[in-house]
Design a binder for these strands. Structure first.
Lengths: 109, 109
DNA sequence: TTGACATATCGCGATATGACGATATATTGA
DNA sequence: TCAATATATCGTCATATCGCGATATGTCAA
């Protein structure tokens, strides 16, 4: 035999259902215009809730909720400095994923 | 003057709101365990509705609806062959995006 | 034409999400 | 302590999403 690497079933890509569920969860968190913008901003610097709210054009409490969601996914961490709270990127893969998204949607416009 | 490219406001990443809305829309479509799995499968080959339904463990009509959603985003195209309908990837960026997702969620498990 | 198979579509009910206003907490300075 | 600022949380409501069963469409073979 020359190469018997294909028994009887088609080769399928790996991945257990749980992993797909978790990936979908995180993607769902990313899949919001305001949150996408926040990710993009925080990949370029460190900002407060108020700054991100202003930039995205949403009220502060709404921005705070979005940031909390993303923090739960492990995207960001936050630290208080005086009255303000600064957010910054914690998930290293965000940069690559955002770069993919930018190259498809945000670049050649 | 040597380089006066920074007036008074912090530099912010570009991107008009519409583009973020569209990106979010497509990401939302991607952000589902079954649909993620279908994307992964179709990046490795050409499959029918029934095959994808079996693989994902969902009834045929549910699979068909997921595929229709993704077709609307331009992810896939389909062609009928006899009674069966084959789907295949149409959006070239899907491969890169899926690769990012795999490297974060589906690889080192 | 009829029946079986493969896929697509529709309407419904359950659940999730998003935005808002009101309120709560934390920090600073007067 | 009190007021002002910055952020967080809560309850509520409108809307969106998901999966299902039923049904419709398309295709082939007898």
């Amino acid at each position: 035999m020359v190469s018997k690497t294909k028994p009887k079933t088609k080769k399928k890509p790996a991945g257990n259902p749980q992993a797909f569920a978790q990936a979908a969860e995180c993607l769902k968190t990313l899949a919001h215009p305001v949150r996408l913008r926040m990710v993009q901003m925080l990949l370029h610097g460190r900002y407060t809730v108020g700054e991100l709210a202003d930039d995205a054009g949403v009220p502060d409490n709404v921005a705070s909720e979005h940031l909390r969601l993303m923090q739960r996914c492990g995207f960001f961490t936050s630290q208080r400095e005086g009255r303000k709270v600064y957010y910054q990127v914690a998930e290293p893969h965000l940069e690559q994923i955002m770069s993919c998204i930018e190259s498809r949607f945000l670049t050649h416009a």
